[in-house]
């Protein structure tokens, strides 16, 4: 897994590539916490290069969403492949998270 962090029109974009699972969840959680602790509270997590996410990865996103809600921040998700979208639908996470087709749309709406 690799996470590229960029600033884009007032949003902090974390582009996650590879897979978000047992092996990589801790690394993703650390990166998200680092960004939030630096006071960046408008986040876009872009999954355009993400192959798959397991429940271990969902746990990281849930914890991040809870933190951002408490801090009046925002989290937008984008770029899901059909399997990642299916996982969000199956888990009910599609109703909890704000999901956009593309990274540009997710940034524009933040």
């Amino acid at each position: 897994m690799q996470i590229d962090i960029t600033e884009d029109k007032g949003a902090t974009v974390l582009a996650i590539s590879g897979h978000l699972d047992t092996k990589t969840a801790k690394q993703a959680e650390d990166a998200l916490n680092e960004v939030i602790n630096a006071g960046k509270l408008k986040l876009v997590v872009d999954f355009a290069q993400l192959e798959y996410i397991s429940s271990v990865g969902l746990r990281v996103l849930l914890a991040t969403m809870k933190k951002l809600k408490k801090a009046s921040g925002k989290l937008h998700l984008s770029g899901m492949n059909p399997t990642v979208k299916e996982v969000f639908d199956i888990s009910g996470f599609s109703n909890i998270f704000t999901i956009f087709g593309t990274r540009a749309e997710a940034v524009a709406a933040i």
Partner: peptide, 18 residues
């Protein structure tokens, strides 16, 4: 229960459900 809102959701049992 996948219909709970954010504050009530936890991750227990989700992997097997997936």
């Amino acid at each position: 229960d996948i219909d709970l809102d954010l504050d009530e959701r936890d991750i227990g049992g989700l992997g097997v459900h997936l």
